[in-house]
Simulated scan of single mutants.
Amino acid sequence: MNGGHPALPPGLTGAPVYLDYNATTPVDPRVAEAMWPHLTDFFGNPSSSHHYSAEPRRAPAEARAQVAALVGARADEAVFTASGSEADLLALCGTALAHGCGAPFHCDAAQAVGKIPLDVEELGVDLLTVVGHKMCAPKGAAALYVRDGLRLEPVVHGGGQEHGVRAGTENVALAVALGAAGLAADDLADGAPARIAALRDELHQRLAAALPGCVRLNGPERKRLPNTLNVSIDDALGHELLAAAHGIAASTGSACHRGNHTPFDLARSLGALRLSLGRWSTADDIETTADAAIKSATER
């Protein structure tokens, strides 16, 4: 699982440049390899007590420790869920509101885990959501960090799995996949955020140089995810620009003024482009994207 450049997922081969990593990520082949035996050989129910349940019982325990370590938590503070939405629901409905008044503090860190270093102790949070498909694991794999000592009311009642707060037979393959996605910690240690931020900034600079005075950065210049560039181009609708920019796959999004929550004027909001990079983004991708976006903006 460690060392070397990660293999390109088959879905990215020969396809348009993918700059929608904030929407979802390709599954890392190493993650798929880790989960595959639990879709084939190790089919037993983790709650059983015979030969076929031994590995299905062991593997989620290891995965739980891997997920917890990614956010600086203990293994027994991680609860597996089927999605970030479910983790948020468990956090919100399983507890009652503000931290300074004695109520729990929940952070939805779906877009942050694996992209920047996080530590639940430094953040001072009581609950934190982790989502697998935002960091190269399959969809349907997520977890909720629950600070030791905090009691939650289950939103799914039944057999008492997941420390009694989420009933249902464990999906071992997806738990293993989420644990394996903890290889994002290796990316962080190897300087991936700085590499990706440099590519992001190169894309911004190319756009700004070719379209002088027309490219507006949405959001703060410094305090943002290293992989995300959200810009508006004057007199351009985001969805129309992307439709005409053949060869790139990205998203549009609404924008807010830096430093407050007042909406931009409608034109700037509708013109927003969210260009989000990831593990397999390259300098060639940036050049292709910049050329396509500039061509689309100047020929519309």
Score class of each variant (00 low, 15 high):
Met1Tyr: 10
Asn2His: 10
His5Tyr: 11
His5Ser: 11
Pro6Ser: 01
Leu8His: 05
Leu8Cys: 05
Leu8Phe: 03
Leu8Ile: 05
Pro9Thr: 06
Gly11Gln: 13
Gly11Ala: 09
Thr13Met: 09
Gly14Val: 05
Val17Gly: 00
Val17Leu: 01
Tyr18Gln: 04
Leu19Asn: 02
Ala23Asn: 12
Thr24Leu: 10
Arg30Phe: 06
Ala32Asp: 14
Thr40Phe: 10
Asp41Met: 14
Asp41Ser: 15
Phe42Glu: 08
Pro46Asn: 07
Ser47Tyr: 14
Ser47Asp: 15
His50Gln: 15
Tyr52Ser: 11
Tyr52Val: 15
Ala69Ser: 13
Ala69Trp: 10
Ala69Lys: 11
Gly72Pro: 03
Ala73Glu: 01
Ala73Asn: 04
Ala73Leu: 05
Ala75Arg: 04
Ala75Met: 06
Asp76Thr: 12
Asp76Leu: 10
Glu77Ser: 09
Phe80His: 01
Ala82Leu: 14
Ser83Gly: 13
Gly84Val: 04
Gly84Leu: 04
Glu86Trp: 07
Ala87Trp: 00
Asp88Tyr: 11
Asp88Ala: 11
Leu90Glu: 01
Gly94His: 03
Ala96Ile: 13
Ala96Ser: 15
Leu97Trp: 14
His99Met: 08
His99Phe: 08
Cys101Glu: 12
Ala103Asp: 02
His106Ser: 04
Ala109Trp: 01
Ala112Leu: 07
Lys115Gly: 00
Pro117Val: 12
Glu121Val: 11
Leu123Phe: 13
Val125Ile: 06
Val130Lys: 00
Gly132Met: 05
Lys134Gly: 00
Lys134Cys: 02
Cys136Thr: 05
Ala137Ser: 06
Leu144Val: 04
Gly149Ile: 03
Leu150Ile: 08
Glu153Gln: 10
Pro154Arg: 08
Val155Ala: 01
Gly168Arg: 08
Asn171Pro: 09
Val172Trp: 01
Ala173Asp: 02
Ala177Arg: 00
Ala177Tyr: 01
Ala177Val: 09
Gly179Pro: 07
Asp186Phe: 08
Asp187Arg: 03
Ala192Met: 15
Ile196Asn: 01
Ala197Pro: 02
Leu199Asn: 00
Leu199Ile: 05
Asp201Asn: 07
Leu203Ser: 03
Arg206Leu: 09
Ala208Val: 12
Leu211Thr: 03
Cys214Glu: 14
Pro220Tyr: 15
Lys223Trp: 11
Lys223Asn: 09
Arg224Trp: 11
Arg224Ser: 12
Pro226Cys: 07
Leu229His: 05
Val231Tyr: 02
Asp235Lys: 09
His239Glu: 12
His239Thr: 15
Glu240Gln: 15
Ala245Pro: 05
Gly247Phe: 14
Ile248Asp: 00
Ser251Ala: 14
Ser251Glu: 09
His257Asn: 13
His257Tyr: 15
Arg258Asp: 14
Asn260Gly: 10
Thr262His: 13
Pro263Lys: 04
Phe264Ile: 10
Arg268Cys: 09
Gly271Cys: 02
Gly271Lys: 03
Trp280Tyr: 10
Thr282Gln: 04
Thr289Trp: 06
Ala290Phe: 05
Asp291Tyr: 09
Ile294Glu: 02
Thr298Ile: 11
Glu299Lys: 14
Glu299Thr: 15
Arg300Pro: 06
